[in-house]
Nucleic acid binder design. Structure first.
Lengths: 353, 353
DNA sequence: GCCGTTCATGTTGACGCAAACATACGGTCA
DNA sequence: TGACCGTATGTTTGCGTCAACATGAACGGC
């Protein structure tokens, strides 16, 4: 008896099981399950009791199959380890939940072509209505690997050329604000610790830093590429600060700025007395760094929200008709903002200005 | 004609559409789609071409329905904003991908009873084979809200009493190491900036800190509860350091430790000359704080890996038979490790020891 | 030349659910 | 009384896929 129950109960109970147990039709169970009102009070109670008794749990796959919607969106990401990605994911998940969608994570082992096409293939097995790609690589533009056709797509952190809908922070303006801020403080030169060349964001920031300097008639010094880590910021600054004329450093993210400040502390340089440092991101910790870091705040929440908006538009429009390289491209840009704290100050020999 | 194609093509193409287009049966399409070998070369090519032409994409829901497996696990999390949660999620996603599972995020708006039961309800609509709960609240133990019965569950950051399988870092040992380290340096008293009382981890660390002091015959001072944020660490330390006899602070996470150090910097106290600070987590930035932070390293990757192992065990065992308060409970503990850097030093008047 | 074997391919049915349609019953109003 | 309505419930059907079985053609051994 008990044995029958256990071994026979290989599959979880279905509506039919609940229906039989409660002595109603499976359709009535469906109605109760979906909270429809046209069910008699006593019948509803009976069905709910049976559900409880049998441990019934609706089968999401069957429901999705019937409805033709999965209420789920995929997020392809290379790493969760960076502040920006994490915040973006958080925003996406929050927005998705509001629209009653869930978020399926499709992680990328590395940024090789193989891993990317693997993720795309994986996408085929996933029940998703659309995809957000948070991508730090140029790989997406290569025609060799094709996203499943007809799937709504929004890309974060890419360039405009892809033909996909793109949402991103205004990297150009952010880097300009940071660089100009240092120039306005009287610094004659601004050195840049850039992010990896595989990142569109990093390249945009670097380009903007360079053109901002040029606009002031300054020849940009050679750039140094880190990998977003504090350690890379530390190492680069150690080398950079060997030159005593260096008075202003703009790092492409807060973590590298933190590493830079550690190097400066170690070398006995005063911040901002001897060297000013600007970061990028405004991570939560930045205001507690020593000294509190002047940085560019990125509004990741808005990025996530807008990405979901764009995606929902595509989903509502039927996806297939609109997405893909030929379709609903265009870039949505989210403003960035300079947050001035205590890691920046007037250049030596300059009184305020 | 074109119109027919567009408006008629409301639903994405199915196997039947591909089959018709290629002039084969849908079963043959299925065989090609699943990479079975018993298909003639020429037929396969024809089918693949038709798939391409129609933009065919397998329907995950139908597949899952047929197979009875979703190859997806749910993760219920309150916030992605803390370092530990993010790292844990990263590890879970990585492990899941290895086993060819994807991860569905089920975010919790807040830690109220309503939000939790909402997440559980949500779970019903999700196609998942099991759930990892990364939970900072005691709510899980309340009988009022029941997880769907028969669903494999692993809990991270909980206590042992729940009856669910629990995986967590060894909080007891970690806090003991931190406290003992400060005592060994000659500090007569160790103050604690604890995490919120809703967090099991925080409570475990606090308890362990207290009993470590008692083991050395020291009466624990009153504890201060922060909310994990740098700001709370800052505020608490501002108050705490008004007392000049305070020479050692153990914060329950690195972010609060960072806030503490900022307060000490501001008050002109030397670290570690006047006050030693120990954190908890060993986030990537900690070694670049100023001074580099002595802290307790948590092995989040192992936690994620073990959580998935436990979950897969349950899934393999048939879930229903084993999970739930009566079943496969037990706690898996992951060792923690003290990382000594420069934020701690001998107490004033003590020469080394 | 008959039978068994092998392989490519087709046909059928079922997974669990819910939309659409069908029924049944009690009451209302002309 | 009978046409009509609203409400609670049941019945049928099909979503897209794939396992199981069915078919049919090519081939080799006797």
């Amino acid at each position: 008896m008990t044995d029958t129950l256990k071994s026979g109960q290989r599959r979880p109970p279905s509506m039919a099981d609940v229906a039989q147990h409660a002595g109603v039709s499976s359709q009535t169970v469906s109605r109760v399950s979906n909270g429809l009102t046209n069910v008699d009070e006593s019948t509803r109670d009976r069905v709910l009791a049976s559900m409880q008794a049998l441990g019934y749990r609706p089968n999401g796959a069957a429901r999705a199959l019937k409805r033709g919607r999965f209420n789920s969106i995929g997020v392809i990401m290379f790493t969760l380890a960076t502040f920006g990605n994490m915040r973006t994911l958080d925003a996406i998940a929050t927005e998705a939940a509001k629209a009653d969608y869930s978020v399926t994570l499709i992680p990328l082992a590395d940024q090789t072509l193989g891993a990317v096409s693997g993720a795309y293939r994986r996408l085929n097995d996933q029940a998703v209505d659309g995809v957000v790609i948070v991508f730090e690589a140029h790989l997406i533009d290569r025609g060799e690997i094709a996203l499943p056709p007809g799937l709504p797509v929004v890309v974060i952190d890419s360039n405009a050329g892809s033909g996909y809908a793109v949402v991103d922070n205004d990297q150009i303006e952010g880097a300009r604000l940071a660089t100009q801020h240092l120039l306005d403080l009287g610094h004659r030169q601004v050195h840049h610790i850039a992010g990896p060349t595989t990142s569109f964001s990093a390249m945009h920031r670097e380009d903007s830093w360079r053109s901002t300097l040029r606009a002031s008639g300054i020849t940009p010094p050679s750039v140094h590429h880190g990998d977003w880590s504090t350690e890379s910021g530390y190492q680069i600054t150690l080398a950079l600060a060997a030159d005593p004329t260096v008075t202003a450093i703009f790092a492409a993210n807060d973590q590298m700025a933190l590493g830079a400040m550690r190097a400066l502390h170690q070398l006995g340089r005063d911040i901002p007395g001897d060297v000013s440092v600007v970061g990028y991101d405004d991570m939560e910790e930045a205001h507690s760094f020593w000294p509190p870091l002047t940085t560019v705040r990125q509004d990741f929440h808005s990025v996530g929200r807008l990405a979901m908006e764009r995606l929902f538009e595509q989903i509502a429009a039927g996806g297939a008709a609109l997405s893909g390289p030929s379709g609903l491209g265009g870039v949505t840009t989210v403003p960035t903002e300079l947050v001035v704290r205590e890691s920046t100050g007037a250049a030596r020999g300059v009184s305020g200005r």
